[in-house]
Design a protein around this nucleic acid. Sequence first.
DNA 1: CTGAAAGCGCTAACAC
DNA 2: GTGTTAGCGCTTTCAG
Lengths: 337, 337
Amino acid sequence: MSATIKDVAKLAEVSISTVSRVINDSKPVSPEARRRVLKAIDDLGYKPNEIARSLVTKKSNLIGIIVDDIGNSYVAQIVRGIEEIGRMYKYDIVLCSSYGSEEAELRFIQLLMQKQVEGIIIVSEIETTKIADNISKYKVPFVYLNRLYNISKTPTVTIDNEVATSMVVDYLNKLGHNNLLYVTWNKNIDLTIEKYKVQGYTDAVLSKDGFPLVSGIDGYKIDDGYNNGEKILDAIQKNNVTAVFCCQDEIAIGLINYLYDNGIKVPEDISVVGYGDISIASIYRPKLTTVKEPYYDIGAVAMRRILKEINGEIPDERTLKLPVQLIKRESVKDISK
Amino acid sequence: MSATIKDVAKLAEVSISTVSRVINDSKPVSPEARRRVLKAIDDLGYKPNEIARSLVTKKSNLIGIIVDDIGNSYVAQIVRGIEEIGRMYKYDIVLCSSYGSEEAELRFIQLLMQKQVEGIIIVSEIETTKIADNISKYKVPFVYLNRLYNISKTPTVTIDNEVATSMVVDYLNKLGHNNLLYVTWNKNIDLTIEKYKVQGYTDAVLSKDGFPLVSGIDGYKIDDGYNNGEKILDAIQKNNVTAVFCCQDEIAIGLINYLYDNGIKVPEDISVVGYGDISIASIYRPKLTTVKEPYYDIGAVAMRRILKEINGEIPDERTLKLPVQLIKRESVKDISK
DNA sequence: CTGAAAGCGCTAACAC
DNA sequence: GTGTTAGCGCTTTCAG
């Protein structure tokens, strides 16, 4: 196999301790000895075995990350943030995809623990408290990211969803849209983040003496937006809605596709706003006006929190809130004049 | 810390070897001893330390994967394929993103070797032979995936690009398109896969007594397609082109965006075909007609090859070719009548 | 400054 | 069947 510390020691005619010392800069070594060791390392192309090192130091320099599906662009962005920050501190990432299976998530937690990861970040889309309970008992630093559900008492990083939705309402009002429709996702609303979003939306509409109209559909994917197009269109027509605000970019895009396929133009005939700012939002035509959830930053901040905890600092807040941003693009028409 | 094999042995009143035997099913153990060990494991919540295990068995059960950017949807699909197959054989993935830096790729190879990964898969978009040379010297199983460049003598998995482009020409001809424009990427063509694609395109057009028109642009991203829109449009008009075939979906989408922004409709005014079938291709409107590069399968097959090699089998072929498929959607108009 | 030695948690001969 | 023991490659006391 490849050279070990012993080989280096022998070649350099020093003890393995000395070799270890020069590798780690852990203790003073005479210039002469260091020179010989360095030369031996170079000659042998020696690279320390991280596995052996981990065994003794108990530091794997590995962070486990369990994602729902890396194929989701927002998930990929989060992972980028995690990795980039991890990289700065010499942490590597081991990636597991659960595809929405709670059982898989549970299994991966265990598997990652066996691999001695020093922290775990979960990017999930399911509703469960089991995961949080389960991982807590291993007392490893972890952060739980879920763009849909609101799992209480779990360290997480998010945005202020209530502020975000009210911001959109204000913007829409300013452009002359007073008959709005909010398309939410028909789940037990107390468990999902929709709770805050609907709240923010409702309050904002009410504060302008408006009439908050909400429509619930059965899902949050592109297909769901498309398949519920008829239902949504119906609500639009019955209520003279001029702008529809979708709780996810995916729904917005599915809806626009439906409208497009049915000869209705966005934003000419109807304005549409999304939520998330997934990567397709800016590529799609019309470019989608939406609320930016800063996925990369969410990942980066999550990783920073893990790192802090690894270093023994107890992070103060359980949930970190990042600033929200409204991205104004092309899917909303100004009808104020 | 958490329980070790010693703790289990003590609690079960057997030796650590016996515990090891029941964990690994490596040798017969009396029912009674097994029962006690199992109980002790359960009581202690014992989970073997994979790091320690790896050190002695020399099996990390880790596959390193270096990607250009996981944010690219096709890359994510490849990774999905890799992970899914790996999972079947208890292999985990450690992910590194190079963002197009050769230096980073080189550094990651070394880093992964130190982590004792049993194989490496690289999903790159740069042109280099250094990587291949470098990794070869570690003699670890590896596969090199590059959708742009044609790195000779490196194990890889791809599709038959020449067949693919000629297939598109045939299809276009059948729908009445005889004045085609192929948009390629303006790089030293001998190094890129465009070599095969242009060849397939040219041969097919020539065989139908056509006049192969090719336009080279400076890049292969969405922006490049957009920014070269004017140039491409110019070529279209000068040559009465009815269908343009882009060497990447990204270019096709950028181009369609440009045309859309300039009031030209696809496919009504001009037909467009892409290459790749990235995930946005089917979401975008009009849905993009394109050549499917089976990314998931490419990842899966790459992983299978690695696994084979780990098991001592010497895979026969250096480059595996997967079947190509033409995905007929909406961006091409039938003008044959 | 340097080497000898213990030991991280586990597997795999090797005896019994 | 089962226990003892020798490492895997490395870090880290502890003497000197």
